[in-house]
């Protein structure tokens, strides 16, 4: 298997360690039931945008969840206005950076769509995972890359206006730093 849940879990804890270090406010959520005990990453960000002539505050929520079917991580996201109303596909398209707009218009449903969040069972958008495996394959095989999650996330996150601090990359390629971080992971957490 390309990227197992155990690897995902490990990458997630490393990511979280870096996040705490950079004060980036990602948090880990635990989901337990009779046969699963899973974790995923979550972050909420407030951002202001120019919407026509008005300035608007949008609250984004990003979740990084492991897909057992595809053996890859999937980025789930939602965005709401300050009155709590969720943004539609068309609204999100407006917020998407110009460089992605054309692609999005050509194949909207093929890039992201609304789906049920596997844990909260509420509507969320997902970036489709079909191509993630092809993307991850060469990354996972680079032995110096200890956290493929960072490489993957930093490549796709800009589509939904999620900025990944470049310092995550320095940790991910710096073995010494990575080791010191991973040694600090509390093993009871894993």
């Amino acid at each position: 298997m390309l990227f197992t849940y155990k690897q995902f879990e490990f990458c997630l804890y490393c990511f979280k360690k870096s996040s705490d270090y950079f004060k980036d406010e990602w948090s880990i959520c635990h989901i337990s039931n009779s046969s699963n005990d899973n974790i995923y990453l979550k972050k909420k960000v407030l951002k202001s945008y120019l919407w026509g002539e008005k300035s608007l505050i949008i609250c984004w929520e990003y979740n990084i969840i492991y897909s057992f079917s595809y053996s890859v991580p999937i980025l789930y996201f939602n965005a709401c206005f300050d009155n709590g109303k969720l943004l539609s596909v068309n609204d999100i398209e407006i917020l998407v950076h110009d460089v992605f707009k054309q692609q999005l218009q050509e194949n909207k449903l093929g890039i992201f769509s609304q789906q049920e969040h596997p844990y909260t069972r509420t509507p969320f958008f997902i970036l489709h995972p079909c191509k993630t495996e092809n993307f991850l394959k060469p990354i996972v095989s680079i032995s110096s890359n200890i956290n493929p999650l960072v490489t993957w996330l930093s490549a796709i996150a800009p589509v939904v206006d999620l900025n990944i601090d470049p310092r995550y990359g320095t940790v991910c390629f710096n073995k010494e730093k990575f080791d010191s971080l991973s040694n600090n992971i509390n093993h009871s957490e894993i």
Binding site: S69, Y70, K85, L86, L109, S113, Q115, E116, T122, P123
Partner: peptide
Amino acid sequence: ENEILHCNSREVVESHFMSTVKEADA
């Protein structure tokens, strides 16, 4: 909107159905 997905066309249903078929084949 916090409980059910929007569905304003049959294409949305088709896209959902095909994604479940894809996932099953994965």
